[in-house]
Design a protein around this nucleic acid. Structure first.
Lengths: 246, 246
DNA sequence: GCCGATTTGTGCGTATGTATG
DNA sequence: TCATACATACGCACAAATCGG
């Protein structure tokens, strides 16, 4: 029985033992300077170190696993996670489908943020790709155009294209944020509307224009391509939610 | 839709039982059209409905609680949560302090995104506030300026100012995103640098300029005020991470 | 304020699945 | 094949918080 009442104010921070355990595990990661992929103590060891039962440790680990701060592998152990923005995706995606009246509203904002980031980071991206030729990105563009002509979707290539654009330019966090929004938008959109083959082809080609503009060092052309890229999608969203101001 | 129960052997779908249970609970929320604050079945009832033990149900609930999809209250029950972006804050904040070599790098990107959103949504915000006078925001500005003169911080007012700007303009999701980034940035910054009293006052005044520009319908002035608002912060970050490319 | 019912929080023992050697 | 170590799951008992009579 670990009543463990701390005299004075602190008690045990705020929450439950499990929440406290989660904080302690985070402190443990920080204190030992552990990085992604490093092995953490076993659950039993954590029980001893934190002075709580297995149940609490497991719930704490579950919390951190949800936040992608730790990565639990069955039968092997618990490792430091990649700390991706996956929790953001899940929350936003779920939220976007639980707003009956505002079906397109939440999704529209997600897309608006994507446009905002693509336009705002245009200088940085163009500056990075100017005068180079990025074979992987050209490959992805070719893949998307080819798929579009066959009337097939090209989700994987699309996602990688956008994330590569940012991560190559040294914006790792923004890249992951873009990926998260991409995930949300593609997870929610199919439940609301389906794009036309024509739009699919326009979108595919816009990726090529973005890449060429970046390699040519033309920021304005890059921004035009970004707007062209989102035009079909915004048209669908606006048509379904005409109450949008300006 | 989902795989559902596999006869015979207990294995079903892919992930763990707890993950499966979490998916089922989300489906339950969607299927019943539950909204924030609505009461969910008790853990015991969920055990029966999902056919798993209480341990698994609890881990599933813990997962959803971490994502702010459900809200658990001791002795009362489990409710549908507010689905805030709190999980994003925790992940990003933790990530920002676990990059020894990149101390300011992650934080810099967070601030870059904030600037991006403030600039990109300028038209929308200015269009909404033009010709009006928002007393609450003026109150917050006065509070910030007064605090700055006394050399005191004004975190609460600062945060509310920025979130109000977006939520008033009808961008609820972006507002919460801004709030999340604000939380990350203010959670991490104190561990890296402390602002000067002069910078504090400049920042406080910039808020007033933003508000006045918005109410005057001057988008360009608004953008200038936004840049002035972030200038002190960016100066600190750039000074500490000189490896930034153009 | 007390009591009991309900519900979540915690602890613990046990059995099973899974990787390693 | 067997043994070991560990994560996963189950079930129960009790503690703590909340609510209503």
């Amino acid at each position: 029985m670990t009543s463990e009442v701390v005299p004075g104010i602190g008690i045990r921070g705020n929450g439950s033992l499990a929440s406290e355990a989660a904080r302690e595990i985070k402190r443990l990661i920080l204190a030992n300077g552990l990085r992604s992929g490093d092995l953490l103590p076993t659950e039993s060891e954590l029980c001893e170190k934190l002075g709580v039962s297995r149940s609490s440790v497991r719930e704490a680990i579950r919390t951190l696993q949800t936040l992608d701060i730790v990565d639990v592998k069955h039968g092997r152990g618990t490792f430091v996670g990649k700390m991706s923005l996956q929790p953001l995706v899940e929350t936003l995606a779920f939220r976007s489908v639980t707003s009956p009246g505002d079906d397109f509203r939440a999704l529209r904002e997600v897309v608006d943020v994507r446009v905002s980031l693509d336009l705002s980071f245009a200088e940085r991206i163009v500056a990075h790709f100017e005068g180079t030729r990025h074979e992987l990105l050209h490959l992805l563009v070719g893949e998307m155009v080819a798929s579009a002509r066959r009337g097939e979707p090209f989700a994987a290539a699309d996602r990688e294209f956008h994330t590569q654009l940012f991560s190559e330019s040294g914006c790792e966090m923004v890249s992951q944020l873009v990926a998260a929004f991409w995930d949300v938008h593609t997870a929610v959109l199919p439940q609301l509307a389906i794009p036309t083959p024509c739009d699919i082809e326009l979108t595919a080609k816009a990726h090529g224009d973005m890449l060429e503009a970046a390699e040519a060092g033309d920021v304005e052309a890059y921004r035009r391509a970004v707007n062209a890229h989102y035009a079909p999608l915004l048209r669908v969203l606006d048509a379904s939610a005409p109450d949008r101001s300006a």
